[in-house]
């Protein structure tokens, strides 16, 4: 391995879109965010590089993916969702429910205000924490 120590092995994720300088290329902020989450969790030791690579590879090669790789980060999100479920960190049903909650919250938030989960009209504010 000629990678220097500072480089996360995640950067050598199979198929990662790259710029001419070798940096990952993101088309939209969520792609950078999910990339950052994954880098961060890996650095914290939540999973190993081979674990991540096998999950990502499975999703990237799933039937129905775009041939041009334009849905690469959708595969990335699916792989991370699956891996976190397997690790017992985030139940997939819960994640999907939260996803819909965020979407309702976004629709319910007027322009000029931060989108917050509490803005979801279906969500009863949880008192604990």
């Amino acid at each position: 391995m000629s990678l220097c120590d500072a480089v996360s092995p995640l950067l050598v994720s199979p198929g990662l879109p790259r710029s001419g300088e070798g940096d990952p290329v993101f088309a939209e902020p969520w792609q950078a965010e999910v990339f950052a989450i994954t880098v961060h969790l890996h650095e914290r030791g939540l999973f190993t590089w081979p674990e991540w690579a096998s999950h990502l590879t499975l999703e990237v090669h799933r039937a129905g993916r775009a041939e041009d790789g334009s849905d690469y980060f959708e595969a990335w999100v699916a792989a991370l969702t699956r891996l976190l479920a397997e690790k017992g960190v985030a139940d997939e049903t819960l994640v999907l429910a939260l996803q819909q909650s965020w979407q309702r919250a976004a629709e319910a938030t007027p322009h000029g205000q931060p989108i917050q989960l509490e803005n979801d009209p279906h969500r009863s504010r949880r008192a604990e924490e």
């Binding site: 969702t81 976190l84 939260l98 989960l117």
Partner: peptide
């Protein structure tokens, strides 16, 4: 929304 959801959890 999915990425926000993962981030929340």
């Amino acid at each position: 929304a999915r990425v926000r959801a993962l981030e929340t959890v």
